[in-house]
């Protein structure tokens, strides 16, 4: 861990000012990922701005009829919040599928969005990694990539010719997969004031700049996450597949939400975790379900469409088929055709 200074912010403005004043400064709240990475010397902030005392610690109603999750509300408090459990059970389920009770008690909603990949090579400064050190190479593509991405890794030049990918890391969050499915909106404040970022645009694909994880400007601070009114509370499922029963990152996860009229699907959302640099959605695949009956065939068609263009890199190729099966299962469970265990 490098040497750094510490500032306790007493207002959002103060926090942003401190960040603007020092390029190497970082915000810290739960610290569960940042300190982890600092101990690995992957992150080396010159200053930590402690934002834990800022007034972003509540869950409130939005005028649209949704909920606003304060950025500093812990993952545990969010998951166990009564309104979240009743109106957004998919989100609650996803949060509780992640990490451990201890970590969920520490990690904040804003911090969850800022989690960095669990790629072995990113974490180990002994190996080349374009995300950690741009231009150094990607060790995962020809290395051990069982936990890596199968979607969104392609890179094309201006003439549309395929280039070698720069990074096949995945985003590790469970919560974000549910937020993607729910089409949450991220509220941020920076030196030029406030703005909103639709969830689909918050995280990004690696492209030529895999060291950049998301659309946040360096001076911007996440203040809240807004959930739209529709929480798919009646028909939802968060299905997580991993290498042990708990306390492990997803190999593949599915956040599924359906609206039904009898057994006809009227609206569908599917987001995937563990398969790409961001929670993966494909509105065309969701549209395929609308107007269709809740059958295996409908679900399979959506799964195939979602995974269209997926590419394996050897050890992770199994994820393509696994993801399809997981989607079919999760949709079946969301439609209550199947028990949820």
């Amino acid at each position: 861990m490098n040497s750094f200074t510490y500032t306790r912010a007493d207002s959002v403005e103060h926090a942003v000012d401190e960040r603007v004043a020092e390029t190497g400064a970082r915000f810290i709240a739960g610290g569960t990922n940042l300190l982890d990475l600092m101990k690995e010397t992957v992150e080396k902030p010159s200053r930590l701005i402690d934002i834990t005392r800022l007034p972003m610690t509540s869950i409130t109603e939005t005028i649209e009829g949704g909920l606003r999750l304060g950025a500093l509300v812990t993952n545990a408090d969010t998951a166990y919040n009564k309104r979240v459990q009743e109106r957004y059970p998919l989100l609650s389920q996803a949060i509780l599928a992640g990490a451990s009770p201890q970590l969920r008690n520490m990690a904040t909603n804003g911090g969850n969005l800022m989690q960095r990949t669990r790629c072995y090579y990113f974490y180990d400064a002994a190996t080349p990694c374009n995300k950690r050190q741009p231009g150094s190479g990607c060790s995962a593509i020809e290395g051990f990539n069982r936990i890596h991405a199968i979607l969104g890794t392609h890179l094309f030049d201006q003439e549309g010719r395929a280039l070698e990918p720069q990074c096949i890391a995945t985003h590790p969050s469970d919560m974000c997969v549910a937020l993607a499915a729910l089409e949450a909106v991220v509220q941020v404040t920076g030196k030029y004031g406030e703005r909103t970022i639709p969830f689909a645009e918050f995280h990004r694909l690696p492209g030529n700049t895999p060291h950049i994880d998301n659309a946040l400007e360096p001076d911007e601070l996440i203040t809240a996450i807004d959930l739209p009114p529709n929480g798919f509370a009646d028909n939802h499922m968060y299905l997580k597949l991993r290498d042990r029963a708990s306390y492990a990152f997803a190999l593949v996860s599915v956040a599924a939400g359906l609206e039904l009229d009898g057994d006809t699907i009227t609206n569908a959302r599917i987001a995937l975790g563990g398969v790409a640099h961001k929670p993966w959605r494909k509105p065309e695949a969701e549209a395929l379900l609308v107007g269709k009956p809740t059958t295996q065939e409908s679900f399979q068609a959506a799964a195939d469409a979602l995974l269209a263009g997926a590419q394996g890199y050897g050890a992770n190729t199994f994820k393509i088929e696994l993801a399809k099966r997981a989607i079919v299962r999760a949709l079946g469970q969301a439609a209550k055709l199947e028990p949820t265990e």
């Binding site: 072995y120 090579y121 180990d124 002994a126 190996t127 060790s139 020809e142 290395g143 051990f144």
Partner: peptide
């Protein structure tokens, strides 16, 4: 990882 000869 046999490319780098290291437990990853």
């Amino acid at each position: 990882d046999h490319n780098v000869g290291r437990f990853m």
